[in-house]
Design a protein around this nucleic acid. Sequence first.
DNA 1: TACTGTGAACCTATTCACAGCA
DNA 2: TGCTGTGAATAGGTTCACAGTA
Lengths: 208, 208
Amino acid sequence: MREGISEPTKRRLVLLEHLLSRMTGRVTSKTLSTLLGCKDSLIRHDIASIGFSKGFSNGYDVKELQNALLGFLPNYVLDKKERACIVGLGRLGAAFLDEGIFEKSGFTIVAGFDSNVNRTEILHSTFPLYPASRLETVIKAERIDWAILATKNEEALSIAERLSNCRIRGIVNYTDVTLKVPKTVALENASPVTLLKLLFVRGENSSE
Amino acid sequence: MREGISEPTKRRLVLLEHLLSRMTGRVTSKTLSTLLGCKDSLIRHDIASIGFSKGFSNGYDVKELQNALLGFLPNYVLDKKERACIVGLGRLGAAFLDEGIFEKSGFTIVAGFDSNVNRTEILHSTFPLYPASRLETVIKAERIDWAILATKNEEALSIAERLSNCRIRGIVNYTDVTLKVPKTVALENASPVTLLKLLFVRGENSSE
DNA sequence: TACTGTGAACCTATTCACAGCA
DNA sequence: TGCTGTGAATAGGTTCACAGTA
């Protein structure tokens, strides 16, 4: 991923590629902008930021634009799969063992962890499950870069710290805890409770 | 929630209240800022924005500040529980049936829906489960304002549209689909695949 | 005509810098 | 001294407005 592109733009580029992957034919910045909830000119700026300028007066060729995005975005969509793990195999964590969720996502789950050894023995999945004590060893050996955190709230902080110490690159946090991680670790919060609260606080945005 | 407060500030205020709920004694803006990953002055601006100015040279009294936030933020933390539902009761959606997840969150789940009637009959929970066909009726009758969307990707768009038509106020989206909802519907995306991709795209933020 | 591409203007959010105070 | 409270400065992101083009 090249530098000099703003964080919000990068996020929209990811979503844009995602949208285009389900489209065909041609599409205008106007259409994309309503899908993403912003102004069409912003979409055009985003597209310009990756150096793509093959738009015509009937919009962009979907596949041509998608390919430009794929060539530009990190190649998570290609063969070079990113390696991730799941930490915490309670009801929620176990739900992510479902094969197919990460199909074609560019990410493979290569390990699961839980502090409860029973779980790691009883549950089954296409990848191995380990006791949480082996977190550091396995992450290093398996060259895991990403983690999905779905432990109990009580464990979240200490596990997040251990993950950070393993030089993990990012955490998707499904616990309710506000994690403290170094700036080198990317973080996305996905806990239903936190997100409901954030929904709640969203100002009424008026009209459609 | 009063007007005139920026969206990012509101989000931080929610997280701030969350942090304070787990603290005691006194705390400085500096401490809070490292926890939230921003500058201390921003925290002080945020706090000033709700009209609180009881800080001293040893920081803020945790509970006093928390109470100010509670008095200011919408009262989801109090008795007046916000009513939410879960749509889609596959492995992921079913994980949210777990009692206790929404304990003390200010939200109660009052209904679950799935297009597979088997599931709504077999699964059990403290609240009733309905076939998806009854979505509109139940949401209206139960005065449900919020939805957690955990259907299959294929159903996501149409369900989201139906939810929007029910005048739902917000959706937490656990599907991979980029939803299109009117501006009146708040939206938070929480799909593991989408979030992993967004993590990936995050610029290396340098240092700790 | 209907769109893109893009510089400039605008607006919003964050940080800086410092006076005031326990 | 070490913190808050806050106006001013800066940075960042989005929208506007329009020239250029198939």
